[in-house]
Write a protein that binds this DNA or RNA. Structure first.
Length: 596
RNA sequence: GCUCCGGUAGCUCAGUUGGAUAGAGCAACUGCCUUCUAAGCAGUAGGUCAUGGGUUCGAAUCCCGUCCGGAGUACCA
């Protein structure tokens, strides 16, 4: 039971006994005492004035007196205006520390056999171009939220739906056929996804030129966009693909294969993975069948041009197309099929889609459609909607070349880590392999933390001109503090100092107590991050803990402490802090180096 | 037009179910490496929380209006 709840319950009793009044536990506003006041936990007494019929000060005095007398772990109190500051006993805080040290799960719940099954969809790339910064945000959020849900005791299946078919890949295929001269990843030395992306750009270049030419010769722009030879050729490829033309399917397989190889490298670098991958080419037909079933059952309707629609005007939404007039699937059709396949494959209790907020409307509609089709789980799907990554120049657009490529970004940051480390004279006695490993760890920590520390729902700004920071509120700062703690613990071990979990210290410094308070809040942070789908909460928690530790570290000697009890206590504290930070950062997919 | 989201320091972001004097980092300026790692610590400066009203003991937070920005809006994914 957390300290807040203990205090809340006690306060409810106190109000009953003092004023014969009933209050709900939630009405007891408990918060951490601000640093500039004495005390640990503060109760706001304003809500009780109508019961006490006394001034805020007097009410707080009476409540404080009652609580101090009746609750063991409350040692003393002071009152400032309507705020009752309670001082919690050292024994309580030390108990937290001893328990954390011996128990070691730090608020992580174990996943039982009958735990709720949560499927998390994230990443979901198109196969016509490499991953960029927007995808990185998606991947990191998806992976992190999976870890957080797991830590809250749920079974998680991470899934990826790959958009492997459609006009986009046909554009790359056509351009490669026409201008590729048989180029392959091997012959060009390019990563597969980059090679295919190159031909996507190539397509667009020619396509644009053709449109310009047609417009020049007097054609309307819209018509030109439909009549340009390149787009006609790409559409023809799509038709051939849908008709299972062997040569086309072979090319499609080959080029997608290149892309998957490339993606695998990027995923591995980012440290994300999946338990199950779905491909649109497998699910779109299932979706089409579902839509046709809906049509038979009168849930959907058909227009004269043979297109199939859902009427959602009754639900406050619009009409939505589900099958084009030529009978082919749209995005929504595919998502219906994918959902059906997933629920057939697994007994999913909750489905989470990690998809950008530009698709809020799409998921609103999807939930309604699945519900209409009779899937119980339809309306329970959760769209984890995150904000866009913006550049100073505005939105990222692949065609305009304003994207920040994922691989380039990571490589650039590893280089910065290398340079900085050399400049600071770090890691000089490590082998090249070990230091390279550490540079990667640091670079990825900087990138991941930079992205995950901001509220996922908000758009975020990334300035490619200024490289991501390694100082201040950053991943490397947290790693650095961790590495220093580990270094102290190594030295303690070298000196044969044993750490025991029996703590006997009678006076705690302000900083020590502050650290203990923060440690005690970690389990609550995990729950909160899970409830709010917010890795940012964990990131900020870790930063504050580590910042606090750095200050502590600065003015408290650990190994130099001569009082053995105190030294033991501080070593214990350092151990627990490092474990909590490691666990917390683990939830963000950030590894902690032993040295840096 | 309509719907949704956002606006906090020069910049990037925090800000607990409404609570005390608004919090970090970056950038700027001052100090601190003979002491467990200076990717650090201590400090200075920087705010009409877009704006106008309302609710109340109390509002960055809740409600209404206005302005600005972003996204979506029936055969792209």
């Amino acid at each position: 039971m957390s300290i807040e709840i203990i205090i809340q319950k006690a306060a409810v009793e106190a109000i009953k006994s003092l004023y014969q009044g009933e209050v709900n536990e939630n009405q007891v506003q408990v918060q951490n005492t601000r640093k500039d006041f004495e005390g640990d936990i503060t109760i706001v007494v304003f809500p009780f004035l109508r019961l006490s019929k006394k001034s805020p000060e007097l009410t707080a005095e009476e409540l404080g007196k009652y609580l101090t007398e009746n609750v063991d772990l409350i040692e003393s109190f002071n009152v400032i205006k309507g705020f009752l500051n309670l001082v919690i006993s050292n024994e309580y805080w030390l108990g937290i520390l001893g328990e954390s040290y011996s128990n070691k799960n730090y608020g992580f719940k174990t996943v039982g056999e009958d735990a709720e099954l949560v499927m998390v969809e994230y990443s979901s790339p198109n196969t016509n171009k490499p991953l960029h910064l927007g995808h990185i945000r998606n991947n990191l959020l998806g992976h992190s939220i999976s870890e957080i849900v797991k830590a809250n005791g749920k079974k998680v299946i991470k899934t990826n739906i790959v958009n492997d078919r459609g006009i986009h890949i046909c554009k790359s295929m056509y351009a490669w056929q026409k201008w590729g001269n048989g180029e392959t990843p091997e012959s060009s030395g390019l990563k597969g996804d980059h090679l295919v992306g190159k031909y996507y750009v190539e397509f667009d270049k020619h396509y644009k030129a053709e449109i310009a030419e047609l417009v020049e010769s007097g054609m309307a722009k819209e018509e030109a966009e439909n009549q340009a030879p390149s787009i006609i050729a790409a559409r023809e490829l799509l038709r051939k693909w849908e008709a299972k033309d062997q040569e086309t399917v072979e090319l499609w397989k080959t080029m997608n294969g290149w892309v998957y190889k490339g993606f695998d490298v990027t995923y591995k670098t980012l440290g994300v993975d999946f338990d199950k991958i779905y491909y649109e080419s497998d699910t779109y037909l299932v979706g089409r069948d579902e839509v046709l079933r809906g049509l038979d059952e009168g849930i959907f309707y058909k227009k004269e041009d043979n297109s199939v629609w859902a009427d959602l005007t009754g639900e406050g939404l619009d009409q939505k197309i589900l099958l084009r007039s030529d009978g082919t699937s749209v995005y929504m059709t595919q998502d219906i099929g994918t959902a059906k396949m997933r629920f057939n494959d697994y007994s999913i209790d909750k489905m989470i889609y990690v998809v950008g907020n530009e698709q809020n409307y799409h998921f609103q509609v999807l939930a309604k459609l699945l519900d209409k089709l009779g899937f119980k789980w339809g309306k329970d799907l959760y769209h984890f909607s995150y904000g866009m990554v913006e550049l100073p120049s505005g939105k990222m657009k692949s065609r305009e070349g304003t994207v920040v490529d994922a691989d380039d970004l990571v490589e650039g940051m590893v280089q910065v880590a290398r340079d900085m480390s050399a400049e600071l004279g770090k890691l000089e006695n490590l082998s090249e392999e070990e230091s390279e490993n550490t540079f990667k760890m640091i670079a990825l920590a900087a990138l991941k933390y930079f992205i995950l520390k901001v509220d996922p729902r908000k758009n975020m700004m990334f300035n490619p001109e200024e490289s991501i920071d390694f100082n201040g509120n950053t991943g490397p700062f947290i790693q650095y503090t961790y590495a220093r703690i580990r270094s102290v613990l190594r030295k303690a071990a070298e000196q044969n100092i044993n750490i025991t979990d029996s703590v006997t210290v009678d006076a705690l410094s302000v900083k020590e107590k502050e650290l203990l308070k923060r440690i005690s809040l970690f389990p609550a942070a995990i729950v909160e991050a899970g409830d709010n789908f917010s890795p940012a909460l964990i990131a900020n928690y870790c930063y504050e803990l580590v910042k606090e530790f750095n200050q502590f570290y600065h003015d408290h000697s650990i190994l130099g402490e001569t009082d053995e009890n105190k030294r033991n206590f501080r070593l214990l504290l350092a151990t627990v802090v490092s474990s909590v930070v490691q666990k917390g950062m683990g939830l963000l997919g950030i590894e902690m180096p032993e040295r840096m």
